[in-house]
Write a protein that binds this DNA or RNA. Structure first.
Length: 590
RNA sequence: GCCCCCGUAGCUCAAUUGGAUAGAGCAACGGAUUUCUAAUCCGUAGGUUGCAGGUUCAAAUCCUGCCGGGGGUACCA
């Protein structure tokens, strides 16, 4: 709102031509002063809430940027009741200072009015966004690597929903392909072993399956025949061989139950489970369409779409033995999804190692003449590495998610037990277990959402087991302190109206930060980047914790107490909303 | 070989997308609790933004070339 008023002021009062204004405002550089905690603002006092760089204008007006800034600043005289308190030149910049007495009530009123909808928008109304996330491979364990797709996708789902989109969360299971050929071939030479694994309710069933898969895969190196056998079995599966189909169903069902247990733990849900096997009914139709449109050819016995013109290797649809490849399945799935949802966007939350694959798939869709191909987005993320090496289920090298969760949950339980007697009774004994889970899981989820998606992460036990500083528990703790304040406050007093004054710079700064929330959600949505919200929350919580250390919220001064309680209540709400968007739950106390 | 990412404090990352003196957390060291939750807060130290050029009023950010790390590159997903 301050921004709009600045633009208005410049338009109305400067003697610049409309061109020149356009030039100036083309990209208004927004600078937020970093008012650091309790210390005096120091150097930052010279920086405004918004600043405008005048350098571009030197090409149109033959003057130094300093001269332009100071002349322009001289022309701008905000009205006494304006949100803008003052306009000051500084070097080649013009700084705009907000009038806190005007601005803060406006922000607080907006939060009050919108309540738990604060920051949400209607920009996506009537549009559907389909998000394909998590999408684990059946018969592979749910590793720490799979968590990224799951939590990033889940967060994006929430973020788009908050922007008014209708979201469809799709868990597209990797339940088809040569890996099943391997398992089936392995099963057939090793039946007794599998009887034990599959029918004795073994706890980590997919781990056992994964071990067999890795072992088989390893053996193919010394014995290439095994690879052929696996291909043969998969081919039979595609042709509907009853025994193979039955085996496949068993493998699938067993791992699915296990995945669902994990999703429940994480609080992640999907609107629809589908799988590669489900595209089978349309795959011949779509491959036929590609052929009819003259896009494909036979090369070395395989059916491919050549893409050299676009600087890519060929996209393989069918192996020389006739079995389909996953590019064909992904293309078919995209077609099905468009037919079903007429999506505004189709988002794939899949690791960066599949970049080329999606470029190929999207290009083929484009060549098929589908203009919605441009609405398909691969939201990629960096790989999780284990002591420098890529995790690979093919090599049987992963860290299991449940193993990580067990440790973080245990750690948060310990943190509660190790506290002073006085703090200990903050959490009722009967709730310790629930709180430990919420905090432990929150730590793991936040750890995966705090950095830009694209960064590779080296899995690090020390880091994930730290609950200090920029972590999920830090945010949960900040929220807990606020909640505790609200509980303590005798709410028989009416909440303070937005008219009350906030005199401390820390308070004004906090309110300004709260005012940024809607824009933050917007940016996170535009860039498919949950970490924008994570970083925002960390800054917001940091500002509060610094403030809270030095200022009492509840005091004898009733008016002051009301104002600060109001501030705290809204802050609590925003932190809660933010964590909600990230898919992180809040403990009642901790 | 070719293509695509990444390189910022000892470690993990920010930097409002080309703007003012590059900021946080962790780890280290020192401090704060008769006071609303110390899973908190304050302070100290830590930088030639991988290297070299270029573009311009201005570069961590853009362009070129190196160096280092990672990923992908025809019948795995």
């Amino acid at each position: 709102m301050l921004k709009e008023e600045i633009v208005k002021l410049i338009t109305a009062q400067s003697d610049l031509s409309s061109d020149e204004i356009a030039e100036l405002l083309e990209k208004p550089h927004v600078l937020r002063p970093a008012i650091g905690g309790i210390t005096e603002c120091g150097n930052n006092e010279t920086k405004g809430d918004y600043a405008l760089a005048c350098f571009k204008l030197t090409q149109k007006i033959k003057k130094s940027p300093q001269a332009i800034a100071s002349e322009l600043a001289g022309q701008l005289k905000p009205a006494p009741d304006s949100l803008i308190a003052s306009v000051k030149p500084a070097g080649g910049y013009i700084n705009f200072f907000a009038n806190p007495v005007k601005l803060t009530p406006l922000i607080l009123e907006a939060i009050r009015q919108k309540g738990s909808q604060y920051g949400c928008s209607e920009s996506g109304r009537g549009k559907t966004i389909v998000i394909d996330y998590s999408s684990p491979n059946i018969a592979k364990p749910f590793g720490i690597g799979h968590l990224r797709s799951t939590v990033i996708g889940h967060a994006l789902y929430n973020i788009y929903a908050a922007s008014g989109y209708k979201c469809v969360g799709l868990n597209y299971l990797g339940d088809w392909g040569t890996q099943f050929g391997m398992l089936i071939a392995d099963y057939k030479r090793n039946r007794e072993l599998y009887q034990q694994l599959l029918y004795k309710k073994f706890q980590f069933i997919t781990v056992s399956l994964a071990e067999r898969y890795a072992a088989y895969n390893e053996e193919t190196k010394s014995n290439p025949d095994l690879l052929d056998q696996a291909r043969l079995e998969f081919q039979k599966l595609e042709q509907g061989d009853p025994e193979n189909l039955e085996l496949w169903r068993n493998f699938k069902e067993l791992s699915l139950t296990e995945f669902q247990r994990i999703y429940k733990l994480l609080g992640v849900e999907f609107d629809k489970y589908s799988g590669e096997s489900e595209v089978n009914r349309d795959i011949d139709r779509v491959i036929g369409e590609i052929q009819r449109k003259g896009l494909s050819e036979i090369s070395d016995g395989a059916l491919v779409v050549k893409l050299e013109k676009y600087g890519m290797p060929p996209c393989l649809l069918r192996k020389s033995d006739g079995a389909t490849l996953y590019a064909a399945r992904d293309i078919t799935a995209a077609v099905q999804r468009y037919e079903t949802y007429k999506f505004h966007k189709l988002i794939y939350v899949v690791g960066a190692d599949q970049k080329l694959h999606f470029r190929q798939v999207f290009k083929v869709l484009d060549l098929m003449g589908y203009d919605w191909a441009k609405d398909c987005v691969h939201v990629d993320f960096g790989l999780v590495r284990l002591s420098g090496e890529k995790m690979s289920t093919r090599k049987g090298q992963t860290v299991l998610l449940e193993e990580v969760l067990d440790k973080t949950i245990e750690l948060s339980r310990l943190a509660m037990q190790n506290r002073t007697a006085e703090l200990k009774d903050k959490v009722e004994p009967s709730k310790v277990e629930t709180v430990a889970r919420t905090v432990g899981i929150g730590a793991v989820v936040f750890n995966d959402l705090k950095n830009q998606r694209i960064k590779d992460v080296d899995f690090n036990w020390e880091q994930i087991l730290s609950f200090d500083g920029e972590t999920g528990p830090y945010l949960q703790y900040t929220h807990t302190r606020l909640a505790s304040l609200m509980k303590k406050y005798d709410s028989s007093l009416p909440p303070a109206g937005p008219g009350s004054e906030y005199k401390l710079p820390e308070e004004v700064n906090l309110i300004k930060q709260m005012g940024d929330f809607p824009e933050i959600i917007q940016r996170a949505a535009d860039k498919y980047e949950p970490s924008i919200i994570s970083n925002y929350l960390l800054n917001l919580a940091g500002s509060f914790n610094r403030y809270y250390r030095y200022h009492r919220i509840i005091s004898d001064d009733a008016v002051l107490t009301q104002s600060r309680i109001t501030l705290g209540r809204y802050l609590q709400q925003i932190i809660s909303q933010g964590l909600n968007l990230l898919g992180i739950k809040l403990p009642e106390a901790m």
